[in-house]
């Protein structure tokens, strides 16, 4: 049996595993993408964590805590996948903390009301699912396997968000207005989550050839719109796009132009919450240093005792 090369493996839709030979650029692209994905999961805990202490009932609070804990778990699955490529988790966190690696720009928007927790679950997690399902077939084995776990858990996230909005939208006029306001603010940023349009996405073609990416940004964005519009009707909420209409000819919903200059601004660090998110993350890491130090000291002491007893 001849040795399987990287190119053959990709041509046969095979999976690349950690110790296989792979081009440096493939490795670097994966590290950057998986790390950015991991960072997004843990930064994503902040906007929702903001509402844990003010959740409207004990049931909602328990659900929200479980969801935020899931985000931490997703971050860990992904950091573990990145580490199989020969990087260190401590280094990746350092790159996040010093701004050398990014996280998804959606988490730089504030959660102003309880309804925003619903909008994040329904729209932001909904968009994330559309992005992530094809990643379950990514050519890099550990990333694909991490995504399978993440996707299973995300569907609970999306449903709990939908349920929050459905309850509000069918409540008092003030609650309905609160739900509508959240959807109005989160709709366009959710469409930006799919990245720049195809004709302005320089790395897409290479990622497609490598089997990291399976569908283009615009294809995934369209899929999300098609999926979401009928759900909005069930909610009894409108989507803030006057150009939104069913296009019989294409068999898809037509929608207005996404303002990608806003996306660029938020990525550049000028979104509503960029500084808060980073300051909070760095603060949490620094405030937790004593816990890590204590655990290390305890482990060393126990090891020394075991050695002494032997």
């Amino acid at each position: 049996m001849p040795e399987v090369t990287f190119d053959q493996l990709l041509a046969d839709d095979g999976r690349v595993e950690p110790r296989d030979e792979m081009p440096d650029a493939y490795r670097r692209t994966l590290i950057r993408q998986i790390a950015q994905h991991a960072h997004s999961e843990i930064i994503g805990m902040q906007p929702e964590g903001n509402w844990i202490s003010r959740a409207p009932s004990l049931r909602r609070k328990a659900i929200l805590m479980a969801k935020v804990q899931d985000e931490a778990g997703h971050g860990l699955y992904l950091y573990a996948a990145a580490e199989t490529l020969g990087v260190d988790r401590a280094d990746l966190l350092d790159q996040l903390h010093t701004g050398r690696q990014k996280y998804s720009s959606i988490f730089n928007y504030p959660t102003l009301s309880w309804a925003d927790v619903g909008a994040i679950g329904w729209l932001v997690d909904g968009a994330a699912i559309v992005n992530q399902v094809p990643l379950c077939r990514c050519s890099y084995g550990p990333y694909a396997r991490a995504m399978v776990r993440v996707c299973k858990e995300e569907s609970f996230h999306q449903r709990q968000g939908f349920e929050i909005l459905h309850t509000l939208a069918h409540g008092s006029p003030a609650q309905h207005a609160m739900a509508q306001d959240a959807v109005d603010r989160y709709w366009w940023p959710s469409l930006m989550m799919f990245g720049p349009p195809d004709d302005d996405s320089p790395n897409s073609a290479r990622s497609m050839a490598w089997g990291i990416k399976r569908f283009s940004n615009d294809e995934l964005r369209q899929r999300f719109v098609d999926m979401t519009v009928p759900q909005a009707e069930v909610l009894g909420l409108t989507l803030p796009d006057p150009e939104l209409r069913w296009d019989e000819e294409r068999g898809h919903y037509a929608f207005g132009t996404v303002d990608f200059s806003e996306l660029q601004e938020v990525i550049a660090g000028n979104g509503p919450c960029n500084r808060d998110r980073m300051a909070h993350r760095v603060g949490a890491h620094e405030d937790g240093a004593w816990v890590r130090d204590a655990a290390t000291a305890y482990a060393l002491k126990q090891a020394a005792r075991t050695e002494g007893a032997a």
Binding site: G73, Y77, R149, E153, A295, Y298, A303
Partner: peptide, 23 residues
Amino acid sequence: VGSLHAPDAELALRNARDVYTRR
């Protein structure tokens, strides 16, 4: 199922429970 960092075996087990068996 995956990997994680921990200072010793006991914490590795507890962290593994929280990360990999929440459901």
